[in-house]
Amino acid sequence: MSIVQLRNIWKIFGPTPQHVLKNISPQASRAEIQAETGHVVAVRDVSLDIAEGEIFVVMGLSGSGKSTLIRCLSRLIEPTGGDVIINGQNVTEMNETDLRDLRRNTVSMVFQRFGLFPHRRVIDNVAYGLEVRGVDAAERYAHCAEILKLVDLQDWGNHYPHELSGGMQQRVGLARALAVDPQIMLCDEPFSALDPLIRRDMQNELLHLQKTLKKTMIFITHDFLEALKLGDRIAIMKDGVVVQVGTPQQIVANPADAYVREFIQDVPRSRVLTAETIMGPANAATATDQSIPAHTTLEELIPLVAPTDAALPVVNGNGEVVGAVDRAAVLQALAAA
């Protein structure tokens, strides 16, 4: 059951967006519409289903509409058309009070440029969501001290944001989003303002946290490698349209079009592709003494298939044989780029 459903979301910027939406011709490109009407189609007829507990990455270059899309979710930007359904409730039809309750309790957000309040101590930043919800001081400080421990900032609660490094600031941002114990976290390029090394640390930390927290995360990035690393599933956007949705392996193995293929060029395929994505039919398996877990990457696979001509059976989590791989399949997959 998907926790978030987007149904035909449109966002058009300009003076009369509704009018443009009604008269839009399906063939017209974004540039044509802009030239003709002066309106910018930021998000174009996007429908997505996001499952509970998954990290869903929306990937695209700047201007592809991904940041606008994520803001339509909690109506920080009002969608021009379509429905957002969260936990079966239609967010697009909510009144102001219900929407505020949704933002206070269900959906929280991490921002690209952190969006920390400079006049509040770290702990008060983290406590902000609880504070506007009306939780009393003692309770929210106790809770937020715990959350700070989670992101390894327990000693920094009484400092002000500008006294922290960029990576630490974004951990505060993360803590602030976690403190309200949301079902859904929206992450708008949270790590792109950070140095590469710190970015890697933060990605690992996020994955580590996710193992225990199991939040539903919708994560925006323009970095394809980041998308591969974090995403359970990835949606790739271009000019406001979602061009492909799938697991990292599916996308790397079968890019939908030339645009997606561009991204894949620099991807170290051997680390992304797994036995599961390249395997042939199960009845082709010839070896019996050895089996391979389905999520084994090609990199790990190479030393296993290199010494043998046999096709090794691939097994899923329950130990059932679901396919087979041999040396030829691995080499083909590596060459396919």
Binding site: L76, R103, S108, L116, F117
Partner: peptide
């Protein structure tokens, strides 16, 4: 605008 958006995203009322 970043800060205003952050405040909105956490469900602040206009007064808050």
């Amino acid at each position: 605008a970043d800060l205003l958006e952050a405040a909105d995203a956490f469900g602040s009322t206009a007064r808050q």
